[in-house]
Design a protein around this nucleic acid. Structure first.
Lengths: 194, 194
DNA sequence: AGCAGATAGTTAGGCGGCTAACTAAAAAAG
DNA sequence: CTTTTTTAGTTAGCCGCCTAACTATCTGCT
């Protein structure tokens, strides 16, 4: 997320000082929060820069990956129950849900991908409201050429962490993800609650 | 970072399977990468939703915070060397640097804040190219009213983590931040390197 | 059958990122 | 002292995100 605020994260002492003014300020929570956003944004922008060299955005890349997974499934040799390849060709609505964006946004992404010749829209024969989105051969080659560098960057980013540290990180992030989901689920009226 | 791809993160077995096809794919690195982006995005959107209830975006909130810090310093009782309040009133260029956005973006943010009466632009008397951006009293009250809930949300998000876990998380994220900076600094030609 | 409501996709308009091009002013070079 | 270069800020235009409103189609109720 762009503009995640504060290129230089505040020192811990400053958070302690802030806690004197605002009793709600939990310094260690705030520090973790800021580092999480900062690291996420930085990592995001590193991969984004790599993708940009191939003239594609994170969003469109995500759509290609989702469709590519579907393609793989279609051409795979019969392991239709493989949980790694759950679905077949996808509709804009499915893609939007999987990517976590609105359908309006997906329309725009598919527009751009189609203009660039990476994707085709085909009407669904059974339900005339629906469309099927498919990768073109050009897109297959494009993704296959792109992925090695993409994976290499992930490996580079995580290089300083041992396997154990990576597991720890994932488990900590999972806990945070959990509490974030709960905050999202419950009515967001925390203005006065504990 | 909106659209960070994949609402449901892939299972670890699927990453292992992918590693068979792409030798560059480091499963634990990829898992950590995906969790980091996912958690960062989720946490971001939780706070964003809270801010949106007060009709302000993360970006504009960030600008207000930067300016608010300056204000605090100006009104503080003489501790001019306090590292927590490094600078005085700020120019658009300084704000852009501190927030990590371009000056063009900062112009837009300040435009909106000024339109909403939270900020004033004042010409610099010494250098007629420069502007000074200052918070209005309305903005002071606004920020003071907003921060408690904001801090409460951070605390809620990090609630499941112990103090020790938070320290661990911060240190792991710091390592990742470090390697991300190195990747940013070195010419991003990793297509063929190790 | 016929109509109300749900669903798929698009369109319109706003915001916040970006780059690139521009203006005005200050600083540096000659 | 003029000319060139650098710097501060804005503008214009693209992209991806959003919400809200709209069209077309399908589904279900009576």
């Amino acid at each position: 997320m762009p503009l995640l605020l504060l290129k230089d994260l505040p020192r811990y002492e400053c958070l302690l000082e802030g806690a004197k003014v605002f009793p709600e300020l939990d310094p260690s929570a705030c520090e973790a929060y800021l580092h999480l956003l900062r690291a996420g944004d930085e990592v995001f922008s590193v991969t984004e820069r790599n993708l940009a060299e191939h003239t594609i955005s994170q969003g469109r890349f995500g759509v290609l990956m989702l469709l590519w997974n579907s393609t793989q499934r279609r051409t795979s040799t019969g392991d239709t129950d493989n949980p790694c390849r759950p679905a077949g060709p996808r509709t804009p609505a499915e893609l939007a849900d999987a990517a976590g964006v609105t359908r309006a946004t997906m329309t725009g992404l598919i527009d751009t991908l189609e203009r660039d010749g990476l994707v085709r829209r085909e009407p669904d024969p059974d339900d005339r409201r629906m469309m099927s989105v498919r990768l073109t051969p050009k897109a297959d080659a494009f993704v296959a050429a792109l992925l090695p560098a993409h994976f290499r960057i992930m490996a580079r980013l995580m290089a300083p962490l041992s396997e154990a540290e990576r597991k720890t990180l994932v488990s900590l992030l999972t806990k945070i993800l959990q509490s974030a989901s709960e905050l999202t689920a419950t009515a967001p009226v925390l203005s006065a609650s504990s």
